[in-house]
C-alpha cells in the first residue's frame, strides 16, 4: 500500500518503482467528455476573446467535435471572422470543494461551417445522438452546424498537472 523506504546505496530494490496508478490521459479525456455534455466555446473577434456555453458532441476518435448555433448570434459572427477556437470542458460542478480532483480539458483547433447536404446529416446526427432535445433546433433553417477539427487536447488535473494529447498523432 505505501511505498517502502528505499536505500540510496546501490541496491536492486532502488530501481523497483511501481507504475503510477493513473490511466492514460487519452482515456481520462474520453471519460470526461463522455460525462460532460457541455463545453465552453472560446472564440475571438478583433482581438477580443469571448466564451459561450454550447452543447457539444465528439466523434469516436475525438478528432472532431460538433455544435450548432443560431446564425444571428455573436459567436456565429465571430466564427465567421476567425476559426481558431478552443473548447473547455470540466467537472467542477460535481467537485466544487475538491480542487485537486477537478479535471479539465481544453481542446484547441479550427471550426468549419457544415453546409447542408450529406455531410450535414452525418454531423447533425452525431450532435443529436448526444443531445436528442436539439433535433429540431439543429435542423432549423437559421441554425448553423459547426465542426471543430481538434488539433490538441490539454488535460489538467490536480490544479496544475497538464498533459497534452494530439488525437491525430496515432491515427
Amino acid at each position: 500500500m505505501i511505498k517502502s523506504d528505499e536505500p540510496l546505496f546501490d541496491d536492486d530494490v532502488a530501481s523497483g518503482q511501481a507504475p503510477s496508478s493513473d490511466p492514460a490521459v487519452r482515456e481520462r479525456i474520453r471519460r470526461l467528455i463522455d460525462e460532460q455534455p457541455y463545453a465552453v466555446l472560446c472564440v475571438q473577434g478583433g482581438g477580443q476573446p469571448y466564451g459561450v456555453l454550447v452543447a457539444v458532441a465528439f466523434s469516436q476518435d475525438l478528432q472532431h467535435a460538433v455544435f450548432s448555433t443560431p446564425i444571428e448570434t455573436r459567436k456565429y459572427r465571430l466564427l465567421s471572422e476567425c476559426n481558431h477556437v478552443a473548447l473547455v470542458i470540466d467537472d467542477r460542478s460535481k467537485k466544487a470543494d475538491k480542487l485537486m480532483e477537478i479535471e479539465a480539458v481544453t481542446a484547441t483547433g479550427s471550426s468549419h461551417l457544415i453546409e447542408r447536404g450529406e455531410d450535414f446529416d452525418r454531423w447533425a446526427e452525431l450532435l443529436t445522438a448526444r443531445h436528442p432535445y436539439l433535433k429540431s433546433f439543429s435542423r432549423a433553417a437559421t441554425c448553423a452546424l459547426f465542426r471543430i477539427d481538434v488539433i490538441r487536447f490539454l488535460h489538467v488535473v490536480r490544479f496544475q498537472e497538464v498533459c497534452q494529447w494530439i488525437p491525430t498523432a496515432h491515427s
Partner: peptide, 18 residues
C-alpha cells in the same frame, strides 16, 4: 528496460508536471 514504453508515440506529451 525499467520504463514503460513512451506514450509520446500515442500523441501524448507532458506539458506541465507537478
Amino acid at each position: 528496460l525499467d520504463a514503460e514504453p513512451s506514450t509520446r508515440s500515442m500523441g501524448e506529451t507532458p506539458r506541465q508536471l507537478i
